[in-house]
Write a protein that binds this DNA or RNA. Structure first.
Lengths: 197, 197, 197, 197
DNA sequence: TATGAATGAGCGTTCATTCAT
DNA sequence: TATGAATGAACGCTCATTCAT
């Protein structure tokens, strides 16, 4: 019985979160009012506030949810540590598909903006980033040990540049449609080959 | 006499703009109220509104000011069209210095966020971007004609990736201090050498 | 259930309108702030704005309400076209009662003032006036055809003067209490008899 | 010397008043800002405030000035007391010319609106009205004594209706252009003949 | 459990008035 | 005497949040 209640509660929280995501993408976090969010969720303000403490709570929970996409990439890198170059080559099509998805790109941009003024959001973002950084650093070091990557590359800087590149591609895709994704993927693979060799 | 007054007027406008920049970076464009901006500028609302028509006017003027840094890069690229690889090598230290400046990086992020919901800001940003894209595209094509760049590179995609990389580096620097700028510059130069050859 | 809610909603709208009328009469449309109006209505600004879109919305709704009194007169004139003189004789007591009501007179004055700078209010006023003009013109012409009114009277000018007279009586009553309404009515009836014969 | 100064002072006050009148007619008393008034007067705010204590002071002074037109009518009535009917017949063309002048009508309307919320303006308006009422009352009584006017007319009520009529004609002319002034004058003369006989 | 009416602080902006120069 | 830069209270309005029902 209690578990059934919990289940319903969890389901509601999820529904609200999804409604919030749609609203935030459509109008932006700041421009979307709680009233609009409630309408999108087909719930009254009173109900929404039973499931989330505040608008900020919703934003934060959403930020945490968005990290999961990144987690997948981390797991992939972790299981292909000995040849980061090859791992990236095969991962790039999936990474690009994810990060250039209109909704994802918009939402990421919203979170970055929010992070400027909301420490909790900033921490959430930095947190997952930390994991990603470590994962890449480790893979680069391991690949160098395994002889699949030039030892001249500085792990930290290389990681920073790789992540910058992906951040940039995602951010730009929110404003400019990517004309030819396949070309972009091919070019990126060429870049990675040239760099991580 | 009239010029002295004009000078003072210009000076005041500049002061307000600087105060606005500080405020916007500290609190975000949306979250910074005119009252706070006025306090930062040590001016009353009435005065601020004598120098700028509206909050949007201030935001837009600031956006246009930020474009100037980009204009400088465009001019440099334009005057070194026949060898984009070499041009970038020598430009990178200056580009990195500019775009990883804390204020600049934060402000750029704020503008990107603002662009989502303010057409005028979006136009300003896309406008200068357009110029930048053309400049790079042209330089790449010219370099290929001059034989200083591999003909296999697609100009548009290469430009998009280069700008993505810089956008990403700038964006990340707003949240994470860059530990060693020289290392970053060196690594970027290596990347560019590997790619634009 | 839904109708009960609707009823309450309608009731609230009416209450706000009445509060607005009291406020506008007390302080003038322009000089009465929304804050004061809210206090008079014993409602918070947020609530008032749930029932009306804007201050102008309230003004306009009030203006439309005031037209109804005029509509009644129009209907009466229309149904007594063949003898405008007699119709006016019997209508005068009611017209005077309406237009010399303190609130109505003040409110009309406020609307006239507001019309100078608010096109929507001006349109509402001119609109009902147009109907009134037509109604009178038509009745005068019909009465002349029916032989109950001297053919020497110019319909348009006579209408203009009649409406001027009523406008003037109403306007003056906003500032000077009418000492003896019955005397006023009798005198007006004498005037009408002398003119419309 | 002192008189020369005084003269200049008086001249300045007059200039400001004229500028205010133009502004108030153009934009309405409330909608015209002191800044606009200063520009119209080609004077700085500081100067304007040396000649008038406040915006209200200007309004009040203007209201007092407007009374002069009415004074002229009073003088005319006073010097033709024994036959008010004939006096009005000859006065009507001039009265109509004055009160249907666009500027005068607009200004009067502005003052009436202002009187609703400004006791001093109301008093000024009522003051001159009082004189006018007395003048008419007296003339009517005298005309009745002289046998040029029916004794059945109640002086006070007749005066009230006459002034109402002129007020109404003036007020309407501010919004609706009078197509044919001569026709209006003729019709009014017919009315007066019918009533004041 | 569920609603949505209600709150009120705070928003961007204006303008009558003052005062340093 | 004359300027116009400067003030700041008040404007119409919004929206995250609460609470009576």
């Amino acid at each position: 019985m209690s578990s059934k209640k919990e289940e319903k509660h969890t389901q509601r929280r999820k529904e609200i979160l999804e409604a919030a995501e749609r609203c935030f993408i459509k109008r932006g976090i700041h421009t979307c009012s709680m009233q609009q969010l409630c309408e999108e969720a087909k719930l009254s303000p009173g109900q929404v506030y039973r499931y989330y403490e505040s608008k900020e709570d919703i934003i934060l929970t959403l930020a945490e949810k968005e990290r999961e996409a990144t987690r997948e990439l981390i797991r992939f890198i972790d299981s292909n540590q000995s040849n980061i170059g090859a791992a990236m080559q095969s991962a790039i099509p999936y990474i690009i598909r994810d990060i250039t998805d209109g909704s994802y790109a918009r939402m990421t941009l919203e979170f970055v903006g929010e992070a400027s003024r909301n420490k909790a959001v900033a921490d959430t973002l930095l947190n997952i980033e930390e994991e990603l950084l470590e994962s890449f650093n480790c893979a680069i070091t391991e690949s160098q040990k395994a002889g699949t990557l030039a030892r001249s590359l500085d792990p930290e800087t290389t990681t920073a540049l790789l992540l910058s590149l992906f951040d940039g591609v995602s951010g730009r895709s929110a404003f400019r449609p990517i004309k030819d994704k396949d070309k972009l993927i091919a070019a990126l693979q060429d870049w990675i080959k040239a760099i991580l060799s």
